[in-house]
Design a protein around this nucleic acid. Structure first.
Lengths: 158, 158
DNA sequence: TGTAATATTCAGTACATACTGAAAATTATA
DNA sequence: TATAATTTTCAGTATGTACTGAATATTACA
């Protein structure tokens, strides 16, 4: 293995660890996603990916479905070929991050319900109100934000 | 059990579920945290909490340490008492949310490293660059934000 | 010191999840 | 149809984690 390949695999492992820690993505699915972020060509078959990251093909079937359902990866077939090709969806990260932030804001609803339950006494509901303010702020802040810089639609290069 | 108690426990279960799903907090720790958000009085002993949520005292020892380490809960002793009293830290949620966002932004560094590894070809690094932009945006957006509305420091009422 | 109340640790159990090899199903051509 | 390549499913294994009861340690006071 060349130095470059080794460094790439190290990077894949780091990026996969992030996905595991922050997004509860299983190890192999995390490696697949990371690999698809940096591999060349960017569109690869399950067999290629499995060999690159050292996983079984059975695992690939499960992981690919997970990543596709989560919106990270797209699958494409080519005419006259049995092989499926996979590629990261460029829009995935923005969508996932937005969904995550929206998920956090769900706690705003829960704290609101809690305050109703606890009654009108402001001292009693203080804990809930402070938490509510935090999530309300989060939600409003993101709703009023412009969004990241996008690029033109010229895709891959396979 | 009164209707009010039952509704409170249902709320605790909902709030705990949020903590489990979004923050990977174990079930019992989640219930403890939720209970401490709404219980009256707001400062309670491990025994009181254990009975309220139906968990063993051994679990409470583990869960309380977890919540304290994570910065959610504070412990207090009273002179002449063996009992420890626990209370949610009002600042916890803001701190935890900020930490979470900072954690997300860590991926920005990883994508930057990835682009170095992949070389100068803009078509090859497109995937990484798009992801990088998303996390860069996240980071800058939060850094430039005012923060939630705070309340004065008049605490609890135990 | 002793003793009663509380807190913590620890071994064991139960449960859930990730992963693989092997079998079954699908797909593209002859 | 048959057959060769690939994908998917599934049973079984391995691993990790949450939780509890019982034992141990700590604490407050007589």
């Amino acid at each position: 293995m060349t130095d470059d390949q080794e460094r790439t695999l190290e990077w894949v492992e780091r990026a996969a660890a992030f996905c595991m820690d922050e997004y509860a993505v299983p190890p192999i699915a995390g490696r697949v996603l990371a690999w698809l972020m940096i591999c060349d060509p960017p569109e690869q078959s399950a067999g290629q990916i499995a060999e690159a990251i050292g996983a079984s093909r059975a695992s690939l079937a499960t992981s690919m479905r997970l990543l596709i359902d989560a919106g990270f990866v797209r699958r494409r077939t080519r005419p006259g070929q049995k092989t499926h090709y996979y590629q990261v969806d460029d829009d995935a990260w923005e969508r996932v991050v937005r969904r995550r932030v929206a998920g956090l804001a769900a706690f705003r609803e829960i704290t609101a319900q809690g305050m109703e339950l606890a009654g009108p006494d402001p001292a009693r509901t203080r804990r809930l109100r402070v938490a509510h303010n935090v999530f309300d702020w989060m939600d409003k802040a993101f709703a009023s934000m412009p969004g990241p810089q996008h690029e033109g639609g010229e895709a891959d290069g396979a």
